[in-house]
Write a protein that binds this DNA or RNA. Sequence first.
DNA 1: TATTGTTATACTCTATAACTATA
DNA 2: TATAGTTATAGAGTATAACAATA
Lengths: 181, 181
Amino acid sequence: MSRAPAPDPELLPAEIEVGERLRELGLDTALDLDAMAALSNVFRAANAARSQLERSVLTVHDLSFTAFTVLWVLWVWGEHEFRDVAANSGITKGTLTGVLSTLERRQLVERRRHDEDRRRLYVALTRRGTSLMSKLFVTFNRGESAIAAGLDPGERHELARLLRKLQRSVEGVDQSGPGNG
Amino acid sequence: MSRAPAPDPELLPAEIEVGERLRELGLDTALDLDAMAALSNVFRAANAARSQLERSVLTVHDLSFTAFTVLWVLWVWGEHEFRDVAANSGITKGTLTGVLSTLERRQLVERRRHDEDRRRLYVALTRRGTSLMSKLFVTFNRGESAIAAGLDPGERHELARLLRKLQRSVEGVDQSGPGNG
DNA sequence: TATTGTTATACTCTATAACTATA
DNA sequence: TATAGTTATAGAGTATAACAATA
C-alpha cells in the first residue's frame, strides 16, 4: 500500500497544505512541483522582504519602494539619461515621469535638458538628494543585512547565483514557451 | 599594488557596475555586499517572473496577479473565511473586499455569511470559478515550468530551500534589528 | 467594548496610447 | 518618419480611519 510520504520538514506550512491538496486532486503528478515550489517562494520571499524594508527603513522617510529604487539608481550611477534610469529601475517611462515629479517637488532630484538633442533629458540627485542617500543607502543595506542574517555567506552567494540563473532563464521564455513545447 | 579584482562572470551587468561604483565611493567594505546581492536578485527575479506570467498567462484571462492569487488560494484550500483568504493571499482586508467584488461580478467567487457569527464571511469559488481554475492552474504551472527550465531539479530545490530560510529570517527581523545590533 | 468586513479618502504604481517637440 | 518624454485614462493596490453590524 502507498501512503502519503512525510512532508519535507523544510517546507513552509502553506506548502505542505498545498501538496496534500494537490495529491487529493490527483494533480501532483501532472504538475511541475519543483518549478511551483521555486517560483512561489520567490514571490513570497520578495513580498516579505519588501514589506519589511518598507516598514523598517522607507516609511519614516516617506518613500515608496519604487521611489527609493530610483534614488538608489541615481546615487550609484550618477547623473543619467531618463530612459536609462527607467530601465535600471525596472519601471516604464510613464511611471518615471510621475516618480520624478514627486521627487523633484521634494527637491531630491532635478531634470536637465540635453544640450544637443533637446528631446533628451538627464536626471540627477540634488545636493539634498545626495545627502539623504549617503545615509539611507547604508541604513537600507543594514536592513538587507538583517534580513539575510539567517543565511551564511556561502548560502547568500548560492541564492544570488540561482536567482541570476532564473532571470537569464526568464529572458529566454518568450522564444521557447510556455505552450510551444 | 592592489588592483580591482576581476568581477565574477556570473554577475549581471548591473551588479558589476554597482560593485565598481561602490568601490569608487569607498563603500565596498562598509556594506554587506552579500546581503545586497542576495536581496536585489530576489527583487529582480520576482519582478521578471511576475511580469512574464502576467503577460503569458494572466492577461488573456483579464486577471491581475493578485486576483489570480486569490483564486489560487480558494482553489487549493477550498471555501475559507475572508480573513484567512486575505492572509494567505498576502493582501489587506480592504484590498480583498475590492478584489472579491470584481471576481463576484464575473461570477468566479461567492460570499456566504457564517451561520452563527454573522459578522464573519466565507468565500468560495463558484462552479464557473472552479472550472476556470482547473485549466488555469495547469497553464500557470506550465508558465512556471518554462521560467524554471534553466535550473536543474537540484538547483530548484536548493533555490526553494534558501528562499524559505530567508522568509524565516525575515520573520525574526522585527525583534533583532536592523539598528539594534 | 471588541471584532468583522465595508466604505471613504488619498496616494502610488501600472500599462496603454495619444500627444508634443524635437530630430 | 522616428524618437524622447509628457499627459491622459483607467485600473489595481496600499494605508488609514470611520463605519455598521454583530458579538
